[in-house]
Amino acid sequence: MSSVIPYTVEKRPDTGLNNVKIGIWLFLASEVMLFGALFGGYILLRVGSTEWPHGSDFGLSVPLAFVNTLVLISSSVTMVMAWASLMRKDTRKYKIYMFLTVLGGVGFMVIKSIEYSAKFSHHYYPETHNFLALYFTLTGLHALHVVAGMVVNAYLLWPGFKMWETNPQQFTNRVESAGLFWHFVDLVWIFLFPVLYLL
């Protein structure tokens, strides 16, 4: 008697998908709803107030956020290139691209913490104004996602890479799933950036 779970790696013929692919997309669907609620809260509080400040009123730096956007977009590209390299069985390039992806995450977090400390040094805290409350909560939750994605990516770059030797297909699937999450984190930032900094 065996307890092998089918379709962990190979695709189920009638759905054309493996379990992990469905699982990660379902998780992303719930993430859509999470950020939907956060943005919904933003909208309700914004339209419910008589005047709403602009990001620059609290010294939000557009250049820093602009650089951060580019950093995150670039790391999304390196992520997808890491996956493409694995598909070509080019593990050297995979490692380079994955390293760049993790580096991008680190860069994003460094810039983010520079921004945070600039706010704190001006005594702008979450309780100062609801704009800042939203700013810190939304970017904070997003930063948590960035950290989570970095941990997964770093795992796949170093200790988790040994799976490539035993089960390359499953390893490639894992990189693809981690990539889907990482792109989603990028996607959220694409909306956060204009909403908090520009509009």
């Binding site: 759905t15 692919k21 469905i22 379902l26 669907a29 719930s30 709803m33 939907g36």
Partner: peptide, 17 residues
Amino acid sequence: MLLWVMAISLVFFFFEL
């Protein structure tokens, strides 16, 4: 199938917003 999942969650996303 995945498109359907995402489509449903997008519909509810707009309700939420």
